[in-house]
Write a protein that binds this DNA or RNA. Structure first.
Lengths: 208, 208
DNA sequence: CATTTTATGTTACTGTTTTCACAATAACTC
DNA sequence: GAGTTATTGTGAAAACAGTAACATAAAATG
């Protein structure tokens, strides 16, 4: 499953709309949104058109109703509990963002790690052994998970998660995980993201 | 600057090739690489063809020479020093990955934060005030930076970095940064990545 | 050493995404 | 309230990306 660019853009529009709203604006034009989201006004209108979102000729879009539509489109009208497997550097960073970073409708319910020294029950994010995954996932209607374990363990963890009913995965391990068709997977390899930047910098130097 | 998919795939092929090499293989076919990287064999060959990389009819590709070509293509024959601005959760996580996570040719040289309580000179990653950025960037030939500050501060930090000569930026702040044409920027919004997964899960439920 | 096999490399095709152009229309102006 | 202006919505065109087909050539076979 490759996440389509128009979905990512719509999510970005939503973030920009939130900022416009905070600044006290009530209406917005495709030009404003495009400018804030780094795309052309035509692209904004086309994206809205694709998802049946309409505005007003000459008067643009009403921010509140646009936000409502987008929130409904993205299932943000209810809370989604998710879990993190792997409490290494990245896992811990994500766990700490529970209140500040992840948007309101996403809540990191629990975390898991193989290492017993990382387990706890009292302070902050609860961290459990992997053996607790089936129980916690099924009892709390959890369908989405973040994998932040080392590459060597990622496929095994992935298989376990799918077995217990996980349907959506965000994978930080630098390996392309094999999943059945019904599972949505999103691969995020941070070193690749840096490498790509370096490539383009080199390319620009070469062709000057 | 949007990073092209074929560049990301080539970087993934490189990771897979490394694993094949570790396992003792010396040759590889487009079928193997495609399978490991989650794409079709035709896609692998097409990507290689695009960048002038050739193998041997019937005998596939020699892993070592393929890795050499890719390493040269991605400027991995020399070390790239980079910096991190913002030692919040994400910044600290990235800083800790210096030896394990970031590939050999990328080295996080220093980190910066506004908060004086995060500064230090002794243990682990050195963390400096933002005022030290111009000096350290220019003295160490640094052209790439990671921004992991809050959204509200990101554009200002971005402008400062570009002023002192940074040419490539990986941005974790949930805001689309405005940069001049000569700067390569890669936006990574982790909450958006999760939101996109949730969208596709909802969509699948709706249309069943 | 002729034949068969098998994997590459490229060309042609198909599909998708983005850009462009402009008709439609709501709001504004005088 | 007629005329002007500004912005949307969309159909067509262009650009881009991915897939498929197949000619080519190296290796294997016997």
């Amino acid at each position: 499953m490759i996440i389509k660019s128009n979905i990512k853009r719509l999510l970005q529009y939503r973030i920009c709309l939130g900022k416009f709203k905070e600044l006290g604006f009530t209406r917005v034009y495709s030009y404003n949104l495009g400018n804030a989201a780094g795309v052309s006004p035509e692209q904004v209108r086309k994206d809205f058109s694709t998802y049946g979102i309409t505005g007003n000729k000459k008067a643009g879009y009403e921010i509140s109703s646009l936000l409502e539509i987008l929130n409904r489109l993205f299932g943000m009208d209810k809370t989604h509990n998710i879990i993190i497997v792997g409490m290494g550097n990245m896992g811990r960073a994500l766990a700490n963002y529970n209140e500040r970073f992840i948007t309101q409708h996403v809540y990191i319910y629990a975390a898991f790690d193989m290492d017993p020294s990382k387990h706890n029950k009292t302070s902050g994010m609860p961290v459990f052994p992997l053996s607790k995954i089936p129980d916690i996932v099924s009892k709390n209607d959890i369908t989405t998970a973040i994998i932040s374990v080392p590459a060597i363990a990622a496929q095994e963890v992935c298989n376990l998660l799918i077995d217990v009913g996980i349907k959506g995965i965000l994978n930080f391990a630098p390996i392309v995980l094999k999943v059945p068709d019904h599972v949505v997977i999103n691969h995020l390899n941070l070193s690749t993201e840096i490498d790509a930047i370096i490539y383009y910098l080199n390319e620009k130097l070469d062709t000057r």
